[in-house]
Design a protein around this nucleic acid. Structure first.
Lengths: 249, 249
DNA sequence: GCGCGACTTTGATCAGGATCAAACCGGGAC
DNA sequence: GTCCCGGTTTGATCCTGATCAAAGTCGCGC
């Protein structure tokens, strides 16, 4: 049985061609996307700033260029659940729909690349591989969302934290272009509260479980945000996931 | 603010044309799909029978014709989380991928219509609207999965049960081709255990909360499975969702 | 009818995480 | 430096839902 890992935090390929780590890669500029120049523009947001409210009329689709955004829903009484993290190269928007289903909020300083929706949709019909790429990305996102449902529905608080750390570790390694390994170090891109909203916990429980993992020697902390993973295998053993040796999905 | 409802349980349109309630509708037969005749075949399963195991090599894609199947994942220690229900017209399979990400199990007696994958993928490239339809369906599923994450991560047991009942009520009304209304009656298509697996609860909690809703007069029971909703509004008030009068999404 | 088995209900107790509360830490403005 | 403030940690207690256990219901085959 192979190990499953959520890919929601992985950096994806350019949605226009198979280049990793870029929303719109250099290689694309010479071909189809040049046609988009006139409908393409950039937006910048500060950490914490809302980008889109659920229900907003969307006159654009977009792609994250730098920074992190969260996708989340909030109930009337304030309970909120993060349903996804948007990382560089992730796509924002629904071709064919005119309102946004969820709130998008900048977690860090954020730059997105917007395309006016109508012309983008036209491009999709004339350039089939863009549609195919979007379908593939959407299928990946769907699998990730479903894998996260196991985390939310069935895992303990400790397993949830370990799962999140494992995902961030993996994502971070990908960004740095090497595979995850023992002794790796990274910064948590989220506050305790944001982690809680992602995991369906309270911030106090997140804090306690992180302390517990530290006391168990599963992780080491350098300040509040910097994490060291002495043994990846030990961390994986805490996730509740089926591990069979490697980080191969 | 409009009310959101999970659409995972809704009956979808034919993936080849915009006709409701049929996986492959009569209208489609004369055009593109006739070309598929030679690659199309049916499979039947009994209630409880596994259809696909996660990791299986998939040489086909398929569409549910009649019956209900569940999509779920199970941890090594037996904890399981249902991540979706597959209803008539729902699509099974991943064009471009060769192994199944989740287990599929027949919940009721089930008939699916299979298409050999290779020729289906070729059809997708030559018939763009099939790809577009698949993208739309996948986006809907993604939204549903994300909405369900709120249920799993943040709702109480009572809210979870009310949410599930509301969804089933809505789905059932759609099947019967009228809108949900006070006094409506339907059969639960799931055992208490399956509901628990869908909601991230134990079967005992499901049973207790159903009893509690009955005692509160939110629902009436006729036997174990048949449910009457005297007031849709009262049920909706128990879901924790933002309701503004109607069942309009 | 009887007995069996799958499913469901209900009860008693337990425990994991939420809640309420207070203190702590670190960085930036002044 | 000091103050302040957002983010974090830790403690005490509570409560929801899990767990363990037993009994009830229904349908079906014999």
């Amino acid at each position: 049985m192979k190990m499953k890992m959520d890919v929601a935090l992985d950096t994806k390929e350019c949605w226009n061609c198979p280049i990793k780590h870029q929303a719109v890669c250099a290689r694309c500029e010479p071909d189809e996307l040049t046609r988009l120049e006139e409908i393409k523009y950039y937006r910048n947001y500060d950490a914490g700033q809302p980008v889109i409210w659920a229900g907003d009329h969307m006159e654009f689709v977009a792609s994250v260029v730098t920074g992190i955004a969260s996708l989340s829903q909030t109930m009337e009484d304030g309970r909120t659940q993060m349903v996804g993290l948007l990382l560089p190269s992730d796509f924002i928007g629904r071709p064919g729909r005119d309102s946004a289903p969820f709130d998008v909020v900048a977690v860090s300083d954020l730059t997105i690349c917007c395309f006016r929706k109508k012309p983008f949709e036209e491009l999709m019909t004339t350039t089939p591989h863009i549609g195919q790429r979007l379908l593939e990305m959407t299928l990946d996102e769907l699998d990730s969302a479903r894998e996260w449902m196991l985390v939310l529905g069935r895992k303990t608080a400790r397993e949830k934290i370990a799962s999140l750390l494992a995902i961030i570790a993996r994502r971070d390694a990908t960004l740095k272009k090497h595979s995850p390994k023992d002794g790796m170090t990274f910064d948590l891109p989220l506050t305790r509260e944001a982690m809680a909203d992602y995991l369906g916990l309270t911030l106090e429980t997140v804090s306690r479980q992180i302390s517990a993992l530290r006391k168990s020697g599963i992780i080491e902390l350098d300040g509040k945000r910097r994490v060291v993973i002495p043994s990846l295998e030990k961390l994986m053993n805490e996730t509740g996931d089926d591990v069979d040796g490697g980080l191969i999905a």
